[in-house]
Nucleic acid binder design. Structure first.
Lengths: 144, 144
DNA sequence: CTAAGTGCTCTAGCTACTATAGGTTCAAGG
DNA sequence: CCTTGAACCTATAGTAGCTAGAGCACTTAG
């Protein structure tokens, strides 16, 4: 049985994050020691590794919740898991495309900045006028 | 003078977002009509276009705040603006690299999923075991 | 036995918005 | 002139996915 600190250091997940996952029901409520401290089994460790890995691959907590419940029922067909992974792949691909366009624009901005006063700074100028851009970045959410 | 609705539709920024930008001081407080409705000048329109464009390019509101104050002082040297843009470019490049690795992993997961039961689903299996991955995705923040 | 370290709960904060409730003002039609 | 419906107002709370802090209790090494 691991304490929360050991579990955290062995998975690379911060302690408050582990408690948060328990709070939102992603991890089951941990057993407690006589002194009320959380104790984790090997199973809990595995589950947290699964969550961490899926987060690293960019899955949302909602998607992970679904994937976990699928992995808890190994006799179910796996089409659902496949669909979740495919959706995530599509999301990643669209972010990639968008970021590539952003990169192009930013490079152009940075390279062209030759003036030494703000008044003829290319960065500021481009930001003021999208028509100076060559790609159609913009559109959806900028956090992609 | 534009109402907030016109300003929103002409810039593609939602009305609550405009009010939010005013609230956090990114836009100056708008003049008001006798009936207390916000009225915007051409200058405010330009400023909002600038903000929107920078957001589309992935700049944080903090970075935009700095860029705006630079663009308000056109006699300053432009090294600072350049630095902000370069930092953003570096950020975008690192996200790109990370997303490319994620894409590789997700593609592998999806393609290899041949079984039709969860019990031999590659997606679930890979998520349980990072050593089945070929790239070193993981590391930093997963939202990249 | 004591002090450092680790754990506990609870609350509030972060980014960048978005949504809702409940009320006011404006513009157009009758 | 009056009404109706769209557009506006404020204020508060919610979203994701944590993170940080306060103020305690417990545990372990010396």
């Amino acid at each position: 049985m691991l304490t929360i600190g050991k579990l955290g250091s062995s998975t690379g997940v911060k302690i408050p994050t582990i408690r948060y996952y328990e709070q939102i029901g992603l991890l089951p409520e941990a057993e407690r020691s006589p002194g009320n401290q959380r104790l984790y089994t090997h199973k809990a460790h595995e589950r947290l590794v699964f969550i961490r890995h899926a987060r690293d691959l960019g899955f949302s907590l909602e998607a992970i919740r679904d994937l976990l419940s699928l992995s808890d029922n190994p006799d179910q067909p796996c089409a659902a898991a496949d669909a979740i992974a495919k959706a995530q792949l599509a999301e990643v691909e669209s972010r990639l495309a968008r970021l590539a366009a952003l990169k192009t624009e930013l490079e152009r901005m940075v390279v062209q900045c030759a003036g030494d006063r703000i008044s003829d700074c290319r960065v500021i100028e481009v930001l003021s006028d999208h028509s100076l851009c060559i790609t159609d970045h913009a559109i959806e959410d900028a956090n992609s």
